[in-house]
Design a protein around this nucleic acid. Structure first.
Lengths: 169, 169
DNA sequence: AGCATATCGATGCTCGCGCAAACAACTTCC
DNA sequence: GGAAGTTGTTTGCGCGAGCATCGATATGCT
């Protein structure tokens, strides 16, 4: 599906690209390991708890939660199933649409999140923000937005990202 | 292990962080899907071929290859095993250290890489560089370096990243 | 030389997750 | 009011990869 005349990356692009890929991989791995060892869950699983904790009544429909956490429905289903087994999340049927399920963060789940959050935020600060100037933070935001413009043209996550700052990232 | 007084993220940091996480996840997924569908392999598997193709004699020791591809030894072992089954890579015993293995890119492997590269580079260009100004590319490089400084303080991948630009990213 | 220790690499087991299929409930249109 | 199609969610299966372990070699110390 590709034309013959490929525009290869020039030296600067090459280097930026490889460094970027390496850095993001290492970062994702580091976050996963930190959360796995200190909180017994994946980053994806953690994010689900965070988003739920910020929702009204700490409850959200599965499909909405999937979009908000930038997760496939399949993955969310798996994650919530595991969370439910641990008693951190409960599922309720949706009254207005009987196909729907509503994921509700339990008190136990909230406590687990509250216990895990400080360690996680410290890690993010140490690995990310401590090494960046405020200007770079702004640049990183702008660059990430540019990525999102291409990767998520319909802006499915704008809702969450537009929300005001809450604790427990 | 965490102090009581956690320094939470402020609103700007929050937003930058969430956008960044979402963008990098979407990006990694998009790359994986593109390579999986057009070349039948993971991004990690693709990178192994790229690095091997740039090495002298298209050969490299497993441990060195693991560092260069930013991969755990376990993962590399799995990936190379799959590559070997497909005839894209061959393993040879290392003459100077009899524990060592040398992974060698076969001609068939090189051809597969050459066939896959244009589609991949086009995707990277479309998803990443087309949406960024040259200044942002530079900023992204600098930010990623800052991450690496923390995540990889011993600079284990400097070798590869310092190398001159080669084709077939 | 001889033993402790470190390094290289592969492997077994497990887990997270993507994909496709399945099922249920809603919607449309006739 | 149904048939046909659409959407919300779960599930079975397979694969990629992490962790711990193991066998084999290499190195260091005495």
């Amino acid at each position: 599906m590709t034309m013959a005349g490929t525009r290869w990356l020039d030296a600067d692009e090459q280097r930026a690209w490889r460094v970027f890929v390496a850095a993001t991989e290492l970062l994702a791995d580091a976050l996963d390991r930190q959360l796995q060892s200190e909180a017994g869950m994946t980053h994806a699983a953690y994010v689900v708890l965070v988003i739920l904790s910020e929702a009204p009544d700490r409850a959200m429909r599965m499909s909405e939660l999937a979009r908000a956490t930038n997760s496939s429905q399949s993955r969310l289903s798996h994650v919530v199933a595991r969370h439910e087994e641990r008693g951190w999340v409960r599922r309720e049927r949706c009254p207005t649409d009987r196909r729907g399920q509503i994921a509700v963060l339990t008190d136990a789940g909230f406590d687990v999140l509250a216990a895990a959050a400080p360690g996680h935020v410290d890690t993010v600060r140490r690995l990310v923000f401590d090494g960046l100037s405020p200007i770079q933070v702004e640049q990183l935001g702008a660059i990430s937005e540019a990525f999102l413009a291409v990767l998520d043209p319909d802006g499915r996550l704008s809702a969450v990202l537009g929300g005001r700052a809450a604790p427990l990232v």
